[in-house]
């Protein structure tokens, strides 16, 4: 991995990112509208390298690992590309076209979130800084 020491690091960063995003009213409302169980699968970088976001039922829960329920949407990619993606440095359409991101299930909910990636990236960079990983921030 280019950006991470081991498989625990990216999951720590991404879960913290989502917990902070939930504090932002616009993002929280946007996530609720997705109304899906999404599994972010980075297991190509290690068996425990994944987390899920459950946006169903008007709540948003974030947890490490694979969900017990069948996900509505699974996004499989490398932890490095996930880092680029949350940093808003990876064109999601291009990444899907070039098979860097593999998607199973309905991506309609994600389309609703796409316009908010810029804001997510801002929060992500602050998160990295607060975690002491300023060097990982992509300028």
């Amino acid at each position: 991995m280019e950006f991470w020491k081991d498989e625990t690091e990216p999951i720590k960063a991404f879960i913290e990112l989502f917990n902070r995003a939930k504090q932002d009213t616009e993002l929280y409302e946007g996530l609720k509208k997705v109304n899906q169980l999404i599994w972010f699968d980075y297991t190509e970088n290690g068996p425990n390298c994944s987390f899920y976001v459950d946006c169903r039922g008007g709540e948003v829960k974030v947890s490490p690992g694979k969900p017990d329920d069948q996900p509505d949407l699974t996004m499989s990619l490398s932890a490095d590309d996930a880092h680029r993606s949350w940093s808003n440095k990876l064109n999601p359409v291009m990444a899907i076209t070039r098979k860097k991101i593999r998607i199973k299930g309905s991506a309609t909910g994600l389309l609703k979130l796409a316009p908010k990636l810029k804001k997510v990236a801002t929060i992500y960079n602050v998160t990295l800084k607060d975690l002491g990983w300023e060097s990982k921030i992509i300028s």
Partner: peptide, 21 residues
Amino acid sequence: VTLSVMRENGTAANLEGGVHL
């Protein structure tokens, strides 16, 4: 993936994203 989005919501599936661009 992209075409299943179009199946679900038609050719205007990404209109919202287009507005933000």
